[in-house]
Simulated scan of single mutants.
Amino acid sequence: MSLQFKGVRGVSITSIRVPPAVENGSAAVVLDCEYSLAAHEKQGLVVQWFFRDHPVPVYQWIPGKRPQDNGPLKGRLNLEYRASEDPYHRHRALEIVKPSTDLGGDYRCKVATFDNEDTQNAHMVVYVPAATFTVGKTKPTISTVNVTCQVEGIYPLPQLELIQEDGPHGSRMAVKETTLFVSSRDGRYDATLYRVLEDKHLPVDTVFECLLSLPATEYQTVQKLSYQPGVTVSDAIPPPDNDIDKDHSHIWMSSGGGTSIPSSVSAPQHSLDSVVSSSDEQTLQNDSKSTDMWQSGTGRGIRAHETNIENGANNYFRLRILELLLAVVIVVKYFG
């Protein structure tokens, strides 16, 4: 806004120079407000800066006096900074010593005299680069792939885009129907973008590109991932089922009460399924040896000697019963 009296050229802001984006914690940054001033207005000049919606100025300078900082910028400015050697333009600018995210937003410069005033606004973003930025894949099923872009510790709210490249010389297109999750912590954002795709719809040589950018800044970075549709050994094998009660079909029991198991099985991680075709087999007899019989994929064993323990217990009780009957016969014979 500029107020002027008829026939008199009043104060007027000719340029406001505020960097649109600076990195958090970077070197000092200058916000400058250039103006033209009539000779008769110099004695009533006041330069003020306002920040966001704060009703009082965060900076004020009157020629001949020391600049004053206030509010969010208190202690954050270099009050000795000079934008010009002209005594009526010397301290018109702000020098923020160490910009941080809390100092990002709208700035308004106001130049006033006894007769009129002028104001102009500008916006500055203080951004934080990504702490981590990755693109990866998982195989939810044999025939699908989940491509995920993940960024952590960034500010302001980022933009993520997933792009599919069909081979080294193929077309590039944005992947649609993606899902985005965003959370915040300690004044920073974490974001995850993903999309599950079917292998049959992907070319042999597919490259996924994850594009990360910050609005109103020049900050932009890319991560790429090459993918060959199909099944790999690591992706195709499902995790083992650790519940032995769910499936007993993989437990071998011989008809004679013994257990046959390949000799190559020497640790819990070997399953019977993986060695069922082996010709080198041993037979575990019903003796006191504590050889293990393993269930497929569980790492849990059943001891073959448990049957021997049960048989021994039964024989012990039979012997005790016979001794008791013999004692009864003797008592009846001699005292009956």
Rank of each mutant, 00 (worst) to 15 (best):
P67Y: 01
R66M: 02
G153C: 02
G71L: 10
F50Q: 06
G75I: 01
M124T: 09
L31I: 04
G104V: 04
F114L: 11
P129S: 05
Q150W: 03
Y88V: 04
Y155L: 06
T132Y: 08
H89A: 14
T101R: 15
A130R: 00
R66K: 10
A28K: 09
T134R: 15
Y59T: 03
R108N: 13
V145K: 09
P72S: 00
S143E: 14
E41A: 08
P140C: 09
H91T: 10
K42M: 08
I96A: 09
T134W: 10
Y127V: 04
N70R: 01
L37Q: 08
P156S: 12
G44L: 07
I96S: 13
Q68M: 09
T148Y: 05
S143N: 14
R52T: 13
R108E: 14
R90D: 12
V128T: 14
G105A: 09
E152H: 11
Q150S: 12
I142W: 12
Y35T: 00
G105I: 07
V135N: 05
L157E: 14
A112W: 00
Y107V: 03
G25N: 12
Q120F: 08
R52S: 14
M124D: 06
V30A: 07
C109Y: 04
V125L: 08
S84T: 02
V111L: 05
T132W: 03
P156V: 07
G136W: 03
N24M: 13
V125S: 06
D32C: 10
V30C: 05
D32A: 14
V46A: 01
C109Q: 10
Y127W: 08
H91C: 11
C149A: 11
K98F: 14
T134V: 10
V135H: 05
P55F: 10
N78K: 02
T144A: 07
A130Q: 04
R92T: 08
Q120H: 12
S100L: 09
Y107G: 05
T134C: 09
R52C: 13
G64A: 04
P129Q: 04
G71T: 00
C149Y: 03
P57Y: 05
G44N: 02
K110M: 08
W61Y: 06
F51R: 03
H40S: 07
D118S: 11
V147I: 15
P57M: 04
Q43S: 13
K139A: 14
V111M: 08
E80F: 10
A83F: 01
S36W: 01
V56P: 02
S26N: 12
K110T: 07
A131I: 03
L79C: 03
H40P: 01
V135M: 11
H54W: 10
R76L: 07
L31G: 01
E85C: 06
R82Y: 07
H89V: 04
N24V: 08
Y35H: 10
Y35Q: 03
I142E: 14
K98L: 15
R52V: 11
E117C: 02
K42I: 01
C109W: 10
R82Q: 14
